[in-house]
């Protein structure tokens, strides 16, 4: 059985929410980390509901709503979200209040909104959706595990699953992650990407041919892992039309170098973290930009780091790793 992305939406530090202006004008920032360009939420979220929402919830609800509208699905069979740090801003607010109030009077809103599953829960409340509601919090594989769950639900008979990968950046998180060297050379970032994962191919749908995740693999093992993944999906390396990699600023990163060397020198190589920066669920955006490339049959020049596309795009390979620990391989096709 095939699994399709029938709609997708992304809010990132570049213009990606408005489909008409997708990656058209490049934004630069002087901040030490990348902040998402957020739309005017008043037109997408009921202001009465939005007043309690932190940025991550607003970004997620806006992209989730857009996906539901695009796919014309009122009630998905499940809502599955991956997030590395969840509603960290509200967690910070709640913890700060605990300290300031000496564990006394605490605001209930920050506490209620501080849990990781608030995002999927908020979407369910808005849709009055009582179907399964899951949140995966697994560091650099949070989105991938949510995606694997969504795919398995389709294999088991679900028609449509609303899937998301989302994280927000704050100055506190930036300071902590920088001390831990979690971004490498790449600026830390944030974003929300939502997808409708469906069992039926419709016009413009993109097929997720397969997904492979692995932890703690060496650079020597990565090429064999990718070859084996492609073999399982009956795809030869010369059938792959483009690579979507999470290189960021790590052009010398040995994992990405090994992957690029597996393919012909002129294969288009897309650096999706130019758009998102680095964060736990940045890989979700690889699926969004991959879908856009296949649907629009174009390669966005701002994120093309080498190669060129002379023929059409039919198959694109996604590879990302988070901190050299969580590795992701996937293949999208038209």
């Amino acid at each position: 059985m095939k699994v399709y992305i029938t709609a997708s939406s992304a809010i990132t530090p570049q213009n990606t929410f408005d489909s008409e202006k997708y990656l058209d004008v490049w934004q630069s920032s002087d901040l030490p980390y990348q902040l998402a360009i957020e739309p005017d939420y008043k037109s997408v979220i009921d202001p009465k509901l939005a007043r309690r929402m932190s940025r991550i919830i607003k970004m997620s609800v806006a992209t989730g709503n857009k996906v539901l509208a695009e796919a014309d699905i009122g009630q998905p069979d499940a809502i599955v979200v991956g997030t590395g740090l969840g509603c960290i801003k509200d967690t910070e607010k709640f913890l700060r209040e605990i300290i300031n109030e000496e564990e006394g009077l605490l605001s209930p809103t920050a506490f209620i909104q501080s849990t990781h599953n608030t995002i999927a829960g908020q979407l369910a409340l808005m849709l009055q959706c009582s179907e399964d509601n899951f949140t995966y919090v697994n560091r650099g594989h949070s989105f991938e595990n949510a995606l694997a769950d969504a795919m398995m639900r389709i294999y088991e008979g679900a028609d449509h699953v609303l899937l998301g990968g989302t994280d927000e950046m704050t100055s506190e998180v930036h300071n902590i992650l920088t001390h831990m060297n979690c971004g490498g050379n790449t600026l830390l970032g944030e974003g929300a990407c939502f997808f409708m994962i469906s069992n039926t191919k419709i016009d413009g749908a993109v097929c997720i041919e397969g997904l492979d995740t692995v932890n703690y693999i060496t650079t020597q093992q990565i090429t064999e892992r990718v070859k084996s993944f492609l073999r399982r999906n009956n795809v030869d390396t010369n059938e792959v039309d483009a690579l979507i990699l999470g290189i960021g600023e790590g052009l010398g990163d040995p994992y990405y170098k090994e992957i690029i060397q597996m393919f012909t020198p002129d294969i288009p190589v897309i650096n999706f973290k130019e758009v998102t920066g680095e964060y736990f669920t940045a890989s979700a955006y690889a699926f969004n930009v991959g879908s856009e490339m296949l649907r629009k049959q174009c390669i966005f020049p701002k994120i093309l780091i080498s190669g060129n596309n002379t023929s059409g795009l039919t198959k694109v390979l996604i590879y990302n790793h988070y901190q050299g620990v969580n590795h992701t391989i996937s293949l999208l096709s038209l």
Binding site: K48, L105, S107, T109
Partner: peptide, 17 residues
């Protein structure tokens, strides 16, 4: 204003604080 039960909790905290 269309307030709800969570707002009622916030108002209790506000009066005490």
């Amino acid at each position: 204003l269309g307030l709800d039960s969570i707002d009622a909790l916030e108002l209790i905290v506000l009066l005490e604080k």
